[in-house]
């Protein structure tokens, strides 16, 4: 089954410059493994060593942020469209503290969305 994946500029070095690639998988994790078999290195830019989705990217299934769909466990169907964007964030604060606040904020929003 085919799922369309939109690749941001910063990751197109892994797709030979392609803006859109196709892949397959029942979950986002499966899809990223499938993509990595043809676009080696792409998965490592999206998934941390600990096996979580990276803070530096936003991944969407159709019109929904996957953080609200179970992140890497998000279910995929034939014909879905996956969009990857660089997260735009920063600020004057130190990185560790900012990341802690951000992950707290994401968790709070995910709770609120339930």
């Amino acid at each position: 089954m085919a799922i369309e994946v939109r690749i941001p500029t910063i990751l197109r070095s892994y797709t030979g410059g392609a803006k859109v690639v196709e892949g397959s998988g029942d979950t986002l994790a499966d899809l990223l493994t499938d993509l990595d078999s043809r676009h080696a290195g792409l998965r490592a830019r999206l998934v941390t060593d600990a096996g979580a989705l990276h803070r530096f990217v936003n991944v969407y299934v159709n019109d929904e942020d996957v953080r609200f769909l179970g992140a890497l466990d998000a279910k995929l169907n034939d014909g879905d469209s996956v969009t990857i964007l660089p997260a735009v964030a920063g600020g004057a604060f130190g990185f560790a503290a900012a990341a802690a606040i951000a992950s707290h904020a994401v968790a709070a929003r995910a709770t609120a969305a339930r």
Binding site: I10, F56, A87, V88, G90, F95
Partner: peptide, 9 residues
Amino acid sequence: SRTDVSFAG
């Protein structure tokens, strides 16, 4: 900041 650089995508 270092945060800005880490996120610049």
